[in-house]
Computed example of a mutant assay.
Amino acid sequence: MLAKKLKNYNIILASGSPRRQSLLKDLDINFSVKLKSIEEIYPDTLKAAEITDYLAELKSKPYLEELSDNDILITSDTIVWLNNEALGKPKNYDEAFKMLNSMSNTHHEVITSVCICIGMKKKTIISDTVKVFFKELKEEEIDYYIKEYKPFDKAGAYGIQEWIGKIGIDRIEGSYFTVMGFPVHKLYKELEKL
C-alpha cells in the first residue's frame, strides 16, 4: 500500500511526541525521528488554525537546507482553542488546573496542523479541527489527573487517551487521532498523492 509507494523516500518525523511517533508507525510507514529545538512563538494576530499552521511550518524551517529531493519532512502542532484563546502546554500545576477547570462542562476545539515538505521543492500544510465535549469535572478529578499523569507536555493539559479522557469526555465531533495530535487520515491522503 502506501509503504510501497514511499519506499524511495526517506521519511523524517520532526517530533518528540511519542503519540505522533506511534500513530505514524501505525500507518506502516518507515521513518526516522530528528529533533531540533525551536521556540514556539507566533504573532498574536493569528487565530485558531492559523496558529497551528504557522507553528507546524515554523518547525520545518531548521531542517529545510539539509533536505534532499527524496526526503519527506513531517512537522506538526496542536492547540486547544477555547473562548477565542489558544491553550498551549501548561508550565505548572496551577496552569494545568486552570485549563482543565475552564474546559469543564463545556466544549472546546482541538486543532492540529501538519506541514509536509518534499525536499526543498514542495510544501503542503493540512489541518483538522475537532470539537471535544467535557462533562462537569470535579476539582478532585482534575487534581488527581494532574498529579498522577503530569500532562505538562500536552496542549490544553490533557491527553484524550489518558484517564481524564476516559472519565471526562462525553463525546467528540471529528477524528480521535487529531485530538491525540496527528490527523493521520488526512496525512495518509496527502502522502498517497505522491
Score class of each variant (00 low, 15 high):
residue 6 L to W: 08
residue 12 I to N: 04
residue 14 A to V: 06
residue 16 G to R: 07
residue 21 Q to Y: 03
residue 23 L to D: 10
residue 26 D to L: 13
residue 27 L to S: 00
residue 30 N to V: 12
residue 33 V to H: 09
residue 36 K to Y: 13
residue 36 K to L: 14
residue 38 I to H: 04
residue 39 E to L: 15
residue 39 E to R: 08
residue 41 I to M: 09
residue 41 I to R: 11
residue 43 P to S: 12
residue 49 A to C: 15
residue 50 E to L: 08
residue 55 L to W: 07
residue 56 A to Y: 02
residue 58 L to W: 00
residue 58 L to S: 06
residue 59 K to R: 04
residue 64 L to C: 12
residue 64 L to I: 15
residue 67 L to I: 03
residue 70 N to E: 11
residue 71 D to R: 09
residue 72 I to S: 00
residue 73 L to F: 07
residue 73 L to D: 05
residue 74 I to M: 01
residue 77 D to Y: 08
residue 77 D to K: 07
residue 80 V to Q: 03
residue 87 L to C: 03
residue 88 G to N: 11
residue 89 K to W: 06
residue 90 P to M: 06
residue 93 Y to K: 10
residue 96 A to C: 03
residue 96 A to M: 02
residue 98 K to D: 15
residue 99 M to G: 03
residue 100 L to H: 00
residue 102 S to H: 05
residue 103 M to Q: 06
residue 103 M to A: 06
residue 104 S to N: 05
residue 107 H to G: 07
residue 110 V to W: 04
residue 110 V to K: 03
residue 110 V to R: 04
residue 114 V to I: 15
residue 116 I to A: 00
residue 119 G to W: 00
residue 120 M to S: 12
residue 123 K to C: 04
residue 126 I to Q: 05
residue 135 K to N: 10
residue 142 I to L: 05
residue 148 E to V: 07
residue 149 Y to L: 09
residue 149 Y to W: 14
residue 153 D to F: 01
residue 154 K to F: 01
residue 162 E to V: 02
residue 166 K to S: 13
residue 168 G to N: 10
residue 168 G to W: 03
residue 168 G to M: 05
residue 173 E to W: 07
residue 174 G to T: 06
residue 174 G to D: 10
residue 180 M to Y: 06
residue 181 G to F: 01
residue 184 V to A: 09
residue 185 H to R: 12
residue 185 H to G: 08
residue 189 K to P: 02
residue 190 E to R: 09
